[in-house]
Every structure is written in C-alpha cells, then in structure tokens.
Design a binder for these strands. Sequence first.
DNA 1: GAGTGGTCTAGACCACTGT
DNA 2: CAGTGGTCTAGACCACTCC
Lengths: 233, 233
Amino acid sequence: MTDTLIRSWQSVQEEVLRRINARIWKPGELIPNEAELASEFGCARATVNRALQNLADTGLLERRRKAGTRVATHPIRKATLDIPIIRNEITAKGFAYRYSLISSEKIVPPRDVIARMQLERGNKALHLVAVHLATGVPYVFEDRWINPGAVSGVEGIDFTRQSANEWLVENMPFTAGDITFTAMTGGRREAEILACEPGAGLFVIDRTTWTKDRAITFVRLVFAPGYRMHTVI
Amino acid sequence: MTDTLIRSWQSVQEEVLRRINARIWKPGELIPNEAELASEFGCARATVNRALQNLADTGLLERRRKAGTRVATHPIRKATLDIPIIRNEITAKGFAYRYSLISSEKIVPPRDVIARMQLERGNKALHLVAVHLATGVPYVFEDRWINPGAVSGVEGIDFTRQSANEWLVENMPFTAGDITFTAMTGGRREAEILACEPGAGLFVIDRTTWTKDRAITFVRLVFAPGYRMHTVI
DNA sequence: GAGTGGTCTAGACCACTGT
DNA sequence: CAGTGGTCTAGACCACTCC
C-alpha cells in the first residue's frame, strides 16, 4: 500500500486525505484510532494526533473522545480571513493613509445599537463618524459607537488626530468579538462620504468587541465600491 | 509574580496574553525563548511551544527560527469563516432545500474567466447557471464554469438532478482554492433570478478551485439581499 | 467501566536563518 | 557557525463520554 515513508505529521495528513478522497474511508465512517494508525505508519501516536487534530480544525474530520474519529459528512470548509488595521491595509497597497473625523457626539444610541451592545436604555454613548482615505480617495466609511462605561478615559481623547480603532487597540486589553460580513445598498449618505454613486452595492463589516461581558465598541465599516476581501484555502 | 500554577498550554497562553496586554512585553519586542519560558513556568518546552504556536496562528506573535518570538506590531486579527455546502446551510436554518438548473452549455468563456482559471484561449468550458432555493425563496444564484480538461466525465453528468457543487465535492480529489468576498450592485438578471429589486446591494463570493496547477472550477455565488456571514473571534 | 482522544514530559535531533 | 523554533519519540496520565 504505502511504500513511501510516513514520518512527519504533514505526510500523515496527506495520507489520511488521500484515503478520504479515494473513498477508502467514506463520509460518516469511523477511521482507525490513533494508536492503530501510529503503528501502521510507524510513527508515534503524538504525530498522528497532530495530523488528525489539524484535519479536525479544518472541518474534514470529527473527533470525540471514546467515540473515535469520523470523516465529516458535511465537509465544512473553513477559510481564515486576515483583518488588518485599515491604516496598514492602505499603506501596504502603496497609498498614503489619511483619517478624517466627520462627527463626534455623545448621544443616546438607536435601538438596534442598544440591542447589539446590550447597553442600558437611556444611557448615552460616544458616536464617531469618520472616513479613511487612500491617497485622498475615500476607502472606507466608519460609523462607530463606544460604550463610555466600559472604556475609562475615552471622553478626553481627541479623535481628530488618532483613529478610534488605533486608540482602542493600544489602550484596551485583549478582547473578543464577533464579526458579520454583508452587503448593503448605498444611500445618499454613503454616496456622499465615499464619493460614489447612490445605490451602489457596498461591502460591509459589522464588528462588536467585548471585554468579558461588557461591550466596548460597535463599528460598521462600509467600504467603497470594488473592495475585495481575499483568502486562500 | 505568578503564583498560580501554569501547567497546561492554555494557561501558558493566558499568561502570555496577560503580559502582552499589561505591556510587559510590548509590540515589536522580543520575548524570552521557549526554553526560558518553560523553566520559568515549570513546564516542558513542548507545552510552551504549543501555546506560542497557537498565538502565532491567531496573529498575535511572530516567530522565526533563530530570530526568536516577537509581539506582533500589527495585531492582525484572524477570523475563521465556515463555508458550508449550501444545501446544509439552508436545511440547518430549517428551510426546505431546492436546487434549480437554469442553463447549461459548453462554450468559450469570456476573457476574465479564462484569466482566472488560466485556461487556454479558444477552448470551451462547461457553463452552468443555477439557483438554490430555501422553501421556494431564492437564496443564492450560482454562476459556474467547469474546466472539462481537469474533470474527466463531467460532460455526461445530469446537473438538473444534483448540484455541480455536490457532484464535485463527491467526485474530485481534495482541492485547494482561493476565495474572494465582495459586494455588487444587482442588475436586471440578478433581480429576476433572486426575485429582488434591481439595484440592490448583493453579497458575492467568488471561488476558484484547483488540483495541483489546473483549475477545476470557478464559481460566483450571488446571495439574495440580507445575507449575512457571521463569525466569532 | 472502559475505550478513545487530549495533553504533558524529557530528551533528542532537525531546519532554518541571522551574524 | 550557533541560536532558535519545529518536530518526533516513548511513555504516562487525564478527561470525556458511550455503553
């Protein structure tokens, strides 16, 4: 069967993939346990473990203690997206970065924002609207809410100089968050700020960031037409 | 300093994160090497390795042999997106899945498709247009090109019964690919097929799939308005 | 209870790369 | 060349969960 040496976890992974493709191990089927594979391949169990864990991470295998390892019936493909800081994304493309604050005010947020950030009703939050430019051309329009109750000292900051994103990255502890990607139809406001046609289809990222159980910030990024987010599987 | 026991790779990771947040290790700075950390924490080097590798995967650390491990200056956040098979996505939401083939023909592709798939000019390819429906409502519009030179037997398949995606998943070896997410402004064609307003902003996924160096298929998925792709960091 | 994956260890060697 | 991360090993124990 396998004449080539199987010693590294990568080659174990390749061989396992080959068997899945060749339908030697069919979707939903149990595959041999780590110890058996290790002895078959002539390597340590830890090496097999590393390979199978990696495949489970990408969604091709399903593993459970005692139950064993199965070939996934629904091969969910996982794609990893890099979400860089906008300044870096723009300068990496060779453009000059500029950030421009459009408005800043402390007001009671609309209901959908209250819901997303799980704020108490009636409390005010900091609302920032800004645009990031690439060599003078609008690149992305940023509409952000910051929870002052979770971010001490935010009210004294001058966000005309530094973008809120960069300030938060530098001054808030490591955080968790959730991200939504979607598309919207641009209205008059987006058209003005992004200098594009009203009615254009625009790529949107919504991101809420949390420390423990409190929302720090909710930001909607609306990108200028033509923006593409790229990844490799 | 550290009174709590640090024995698992997760707790090593937490402690490293704490030090990054507390600016004990600042962005761009070199952190102690694996052996030093292992002796400080009182665990094996492999345990430290596992923790640091995980952090490097999420983009918080940059590691190079001989050069050592540094705190990333640009904290690129990586998000992992699940890309399920459309049938599963629809049924998982509790809707009835239906697939409808709109057209199927073998023609010479337009130039942009030739470029994307690196086909030879003048050669024909299989062009499929279809729509996936959720309980009768258009969910996503699929425009696909298949390279017959890379997929033997594809010309005899009846794609009115089975979607090309599912057939390819089941019949082609495990493949690599690249994915682009973007937004478009829907035209008359999209409006008709997706039963929405012309001019709506639509979420688009472009995917090219390869075996080794040959393109298998290029597919553009145009989702109905309101589609959201969600993930957690 | 028992079988399976999850993890830790101590030691070893390898691979890459900065100097 | 030498220092650092990358990986492998053999063995051990633990944690989960199916029966």
